[in-house]
């Protein structure tokens, strides 16, 4: 691979790192968000970028709202506006006028027997059992082995300080690649226009 192409690819990689770190930082307050990680792999064919999701559980934060739910060791399921069933780790639900639990994106919490219908004051225990006036109504539909914490939200697993360091590192890497590119360009300028000059 040509060294100028390689430096351009390095600049592109730094740019992608910045995009990902900036997006991670912006989601420092998004419940259940998991940060993205970028890895660069260098070979003769250039720089390949791999994006992955850091699956480390974020810290649980007590909110005091009974219908704020956080799944531990798995996820629970919600139905979105298009009728699709989606796995979710943490969301802030509230009752609508028909007794269904709906999150801020308009998705409905699912029980084992379809959409849950509860009354104000219903409780949800760690095994996901929903009780109304002490009677078990249904169980939250969730992945095997997952428990559900009611009154908690999973915070984003973004570490603001670490992510800020990544932002600065990406910026410097971009500068370095740009400097190297200019240096290569100057060298070639000399090669072509001075060294190879045929004296008349």
């Amino acid at each position: 691979m040509d060294s100028i192409d390689l430096m351009a690819a390095a600049m592109h990689a730094a740019r992608t790192r910045l995009d990902v770190s900036a997006a991670n930082l912006s989601n420092a307050s998004s419940a259940g968000f998991r940060r993205r990680i970028v890895r660069a792999i260098v070979s003769e064919r250039g720089i390949a970028l791999l994006t992955a999701i850091d699956r480390k559980q974020g810290p649980l934060e007590r909110t005091g709202r009974l219908f704020d739910l956080a799944a531990v060791g798995g996820s629970f399921f919600v139905r979105d506006a298009h009728g699709a069933t989606v796995a979710e780790r943490s969301a802030s639900f509230s009752l609508d006028a028909t007794g269904r639990l709906v999150d801020e994106r308009g998705r409905t919490l699912l029980g084992e027997r379809g959409a849950l219908k509860v009354k104000q004051g219903a409780t949800i225990d760690a095994r996901g059992v929903v009780r109304d006036d002490g009677n078990a109504l249904d169980e939250i539909h969730r992945t095997p082995g997952a428990s559900v914490e009611s009154g908690f939200l999973e915070r984003s697993n973004v570490d603001s300080i670490g992510e800020m360091v990544d932002v600065l590192a990406a910026q410097r890497a971009f500068e370095t690649a740009e400097k190297a590119l200019s240096a290569i360009d100057q060298t070639r300028d000399k090669d072509v226009n001075d060294v190879a000059r045929v004296k008349a």
């Binding site: 770190s21 900036a22 912006s26 420092a28 307050s29 603001s160 992510e163 800020m164 932002v167 910026q171």
Partner: peptide, 13 residues
């Protein structure tokens, strides 16, 4: 802190 970190992101970009 998060605001400052995001401001750094804007600067870097």
């Amino acid at each position: 802190r998060a605001y400052e970190a995001n401001a750094k992101g804007v600067q870097a970009a």
